[in-house]
């Protein structure tokens, strides 16, 4: 189903998008299996209508909002972003979505809201991968408030002009293009404003390998592999890898969020 007239955005990259086939058949979405091709094969069981997002925590007007209202109530934009996975591969994805900040403001966060916590659906019948405790379910992620409010941070509702395919995190997923892909939590059912740093799934699983911030950073290696270079999906067997840039090339827009922070410590 097409999303009507998404507005082009100056924040888009002009790099060539990865093919739709690769974007939808090379996914990390452990709720549907741990192989890259599993989500495309298994995500048919996910029911994305009706879908309700709960927003609560440190805010003046907590509440719920349905996916239809999210699609019609916010101006949908096309954002072509680079996506850099912590596993040292990358894609360029033409997302459709809207700034997360636009949504958060409606619920009027209080001064106590210093972080935003996200949660994926928990339902092993729809998400068979959750029957095995490969990770702690439901998948959880978090952002600092200023990261969440940054104009580059979006909630995606679609890609390539169509509603999100299930394997890409339908019907609603986070996209934070300067962070490793695992921060961009999929199939979100809950957003909560918190005073303290919320738990994040991969960070809890292996704190020395996956940081809470997880900003793309070629200077800080993953303990088991280098992050200096990455492979761009779709370039073929003999293509050279690319140099990884700090903040995935979005440093001009976001580096100031972390001024004065030791990025080796807060990796």
């Amino acid at each position: 189903e097409r999303i009507p007239n998404p507005r082009p955005s100056p924040l888009s990259t002009d790099e060539k998008p990865t093919s739709l086939d690769d974007v939808t058949h090379y996914n990390n979405f452990y709720e549907f299996g741990t192989e890259k091709t599993d989500p495309a094969a298994n995500a048919g069981t996910l029911e994305t209508r009706p879908w309700t997002l709960v927003v609560d925590g440190a805010c003046e007007s907590p509440g719920e909002i349905g996916i239809e209202d999210l699609l019609s109530g916010f101006t949908q934009e096309e954002r072509v972003y680079r996506l850099r996975c912590v596993e040292a591969w990358a894609m360029v994805v033409p997302w459709v979505g809207f700034p997360l900040g636009d949504l958060l403001k409606r619920f009027r966060p209080t001064s106590k809201a210093r972080y935003v916590a996200f949660e994926t659906l928990l339902d092993p019948d729809q998400m068979p991968g959750q029957r095995r405790s490969v990770l702690e379910w439901p998948y959880r992620e978090g952002l600092r408030m200023d990261e969440a409010m940054h104009p580059l941070t979006i909630l995606a509702t679609g890609l390539y002009g169509e509603l999100l395919p299930n394997q890409n995190g339908a019907p609603l997923r986070l996209v934070v293009p300067w962070k490793y892909g695992f921060k961009s939590i999929k199939s979100i059912v809950r957003i909560r404003f918190t005073e303290r740093q919320p738990p994040a799934t991969w960070n809890r699983m292996q704190p020395d390998e996956y940081g809470f911030y997880a900003n793309v950073n070629p200077a800080v290696d993953h303990p088991r592999w280098s992050q200096k270079r990455h492979r761009v999906i779709g370039e073929g067997l003999f293509a050279r890898k690319h140099e990884t840039l700090p903040f995935n090339g979005y440093g001009e827009q976001v580096a100031s969020l972390y001024s004065g922070m030791d990025l080796r410590r807060y990796f």
């Binding site: 090379y26 091709t37 492979r231 999906i233 073929g236 067997l237």
Partner: peptide, 15 residues
């Protein structure tokens, strides 16, 4: 599969 270009999205990883 390498000749046919059907090693998947990440052919190096597949091999």
């Amino acid at each position: 599969e390498a000749v046919a270009g059907s090693l998947g999205a990440n052919p190096v990883e597949t091999l």
